[in-house]
């Protein structure tokens, strides 16, 4: 049985989706059938494996880390 929590995390982190789409899929999880949940997971898994997304995610995380450091240093 697919864990909803892990699918929610995948939706939140996926660069395949916009913010609006993330909200849509998070809200829709509850009424999805198990096969549909599996399909969604499969799509998000494959999107995560695209090197472009991985590289961008890494860069965005680096910027986020820098932002936190800058904000902390500024206090």
């Amino acid at each position: 049985m697919l864990e909803l929590a892990s699918l929610q995390a995948m939706i939140r982190e996926s660069l395949l989706l916009t913010d609006a789409e993330r909200a849509y899929w998070l809200a829709g999880l509850a009424r999805m059938t198990p096969p549909q949940l599996d399909r969604l997971k499969s799509i998000l898994d494959r999107a995560r494996a695209i090197p472009w997304n991985a590289a961008l995610k890494q860069t965005v995380e680096k910027i986020a880390g820098g932002a936190v450091a800058a904000a902390t240093a500024g206090k």
């Binding site: 395949l16 849509y24 009424r31 549909q36 969604l40 999107a47 695209i50 472009w52 997304n53």
Partner: peptide, 16 residues
């Protein structure tokens, strides 16, 4: 692949 996956996710939603 990215474009195909977006197309696929749209199909999933349309079926729902």
């Amino acid at each position: 692949t990215d474009a195909a996956l977006r197309f696929e996710i749209s199909q999933l939603s349309d079926e729902m």
